[in-house]
Design a protein around this nucleic acid. Structure first.
Lengths: 228, 228, 228, 228
DNA sequence: CATGAATGAGGTTTCATTCAT
DNA sequence: TATGAATGAAACCTCATTCAT
């Protein structure tokens, strides 16, 4: 199993003074820029500092090691996305399922595209970060928010709501990621939004239906058998 | 943009002799093992060679540099997955849409889970590999195969078949990846298969329906409006 | 030969005001604590300041550089020890040799043990301090004091008094150091005191006797020959 | 307490091949040279490698970190000294006490002076090395050897032989060290040898006498009382 | 005066790659 | 052909010291 020297991932000091705030902001932003321009493999703390217009020493005053820096960037970005999703969930309780889905998709895609550079850049760093812990935490938040919302959807009931939400979120995240990685155009983005809504609505309705369906039809259709 | 010293990514020599075949196999397998045990950041050519029971020198006889090694591993793994999907597509032409979806999902998940260790390990290396080129090529193959198949589905017609297939594949890949990353259980895997089929069937039917729907209803339901 | 940037080793300002006195005291004490808790290699000016409850800037107001700080600590500690020895020497002129020895040993050990933490901690810094100069100066003081005293010992005469005193002092210092480094117990300390006195008395008597002995017996017994 | 990252102190690979042997030897020797010419504080692995005529990388093939290198040098040097003492002890069993002492002193001083440069240089590194563990081990060896020998001395019996040996060894080590640190001359060295023998013989005889003496005279003479 | 953010030279260590054996 | 010792560029990180506030 990956044994990462358990160096703290937490920032060293929280910037309280005005100047520090600017410095930290510059460092985080530079990290994304260097990630985009040089790739994860060639991101060095020196390069980040240089781009941010500070010395390496300064960088290390705020982040005790390289991983904690990357972690901070990732955390902020994903945190924003999750917060957007949470807000959408809060604001759309008791609406029809279709509306819920459309709202969540819109929030998610908007948040991702708002910082599409960061989104793309960060796909490359999560692996080496024990990002799993972070991802797990954030995923949980999103799942919780969405589950709560879905339970208020009129006329629908999910038998496996947790897992369904997990599938929903990871599917739209996967599709969005794939699109961002191949590169987007205005048109592609519109397609993405439209199809994500389609996919989400179709899936959730289907998953809700499963509830009753399983009782009557027994099981899913598998390859090798003829549909009636 | 990432500027990678354009060292050849191609293996140095094709292993024709029996012995070479064994050696190469050992090297590729060790790569995955080291990836899993040490993480991408701490994968070194020396470590891979050591684990494979050969000297570094020997490793470099087959792969001119580290990236070509990783590339080979990634290529083989993804190639297997895509081939499985292609086969499923070939074998399910003219079947009902539901069957097609179930077949592709099964092929995809089977291939991924057959080497779940490799799947997980490789998520971490693709980014630093200009994997995009490779991914693009393989994605293209899968898309082509699936598009061909879908065009033979009885009674269905897709207006944006290319994009729809892209969405379908990246969505199920995203969900599968997410599940593998959090760690799976027997039960989770069954849920995954069932829900992927559900999701795929629901989405494709919906996307096919869109065809006509758009003519009549004009546009998708967006948040903020009441559904009828 | 060691070339040390000849930055001044002298403190920057003499603490005359009451507040400064407290500050300087805190700084010196913290130095010892950090030395003990982190080791010489990881003693940093920032850490010392932090522990002393002042800012680095303040520390640098009193000591122009790190070495001057360490030098001050070492000087104070060794100075105390030497002063104790000097006092013992002054107070025991004209006493019998045995009393002189016992008095010096007691003074030395008392001084060392009074700050055993400092004693141990400082063994680690002397080397990198050109401590030799300081040590030489202090050793000189101790030697002078002790030689003066010994010359007043009734009925004894040393042929090589300087060297004999050097041997005496470095031997008891060596034994004390060794004991402190392995860690002491109440019982060990008593043994130390007793045996140091024993050793000192025996050696000095023997060295005094040598005077005449050399004339009659010619030379020391060496291994390989049978004693009569 | 000093918390040293418990990086292995053991060498990475034992040099079996001829060339490696030469390389390792060169590295160890350079370490001493750099220690002497630059001081412990300014000893860097790069400098050592440079002086040894190899690259840093090579150095790190044999020693996993700086401390393990210093440790190896210290271990070898002290090991030699202790071995010499052990040999002397083995070869002088059953001889008169005076001969024993003279033999051990000679062995010790010879070993120290044979590599007086190393001796001096290494005084500076032991502290930051957890040298204590090593020192403890080696001291134990020397103590054991000497205790064994002393028990065979005709007509003598020690009540606290362990402690007495400890005092003896650390006293002569201390005196030798002090002399080496102030710098020696031919004449000084002769004096050192002569006085160490004197000191050792006098102390051991006295300590052996203590045995009976304590019964009759009760206690040692302390300052402040008149000797009869 | 005191503070502590900023500096950046320089130290330790890793690791892809080569090449003499 | 296989080996693995040697290389050295380059990465990460520390810390003595300064100086604007």
């Amino acid at each position: 199993m990956k044994t990462h020297s358990q160096a703290s991932l937490k920032p060293r000091k929280t910037p309280v003074q005005a100047r520090s705030g600017v410095t930290v902001e510059a460092i985080l932003e530079s990290t994304i820029q260097v990630l985009l321009s040089h790739g994860a493999e060639r991101l060095t703390t020196t390069r980040v500092a240089e781009r941010a217009g500070v010395s390496v020493g300064t960088l290390y005053q705020y982040y005790p090691n390289k991983r904690s820096l990357l972690f901070a960037v990732l955390e902020r970005h994903l945190g924003n996305v999750v917060s957007a999703v949470e807000r959408a969930c809060r604001e759309n309780s008791h609406r029809p399922l279709n509306v819920m889905v459309a709202a969540v998709v819109q929030a998610f895609v908007d948040a991702k595209l708002a910082r599409r550079d960061a989104s793309v850049a960060l796909y490359a760093v999560a692996p080496d970060l024990d990002g799993e812990a972070l991802i797990a935490k954030l995923t949980k938040r999103a799942e919780t928010a969405m589950s709560s919302m879905l339970r208020t959807a009129p006329g629908v009931r999910f038998s496996q709501i947790e897992f369904t939400v997990f599938m929903f979120l990871s599917a739209i995240a996967g599709a969005t990621r794939a699109l961002l990685e191949v590169g987007t155009s205005q048109e592609m983005e519109e397609n993405l939004r439209r199809h994500l809504v389609l996919l989400g609505q179709a899936y959730l309705k289907s998953a809700a239906g499963q509830n009753r369906a399983r009782k009557t039809r027994g099981r899913l259709q598998l390859p090798g058998e003829q549909s009636a």
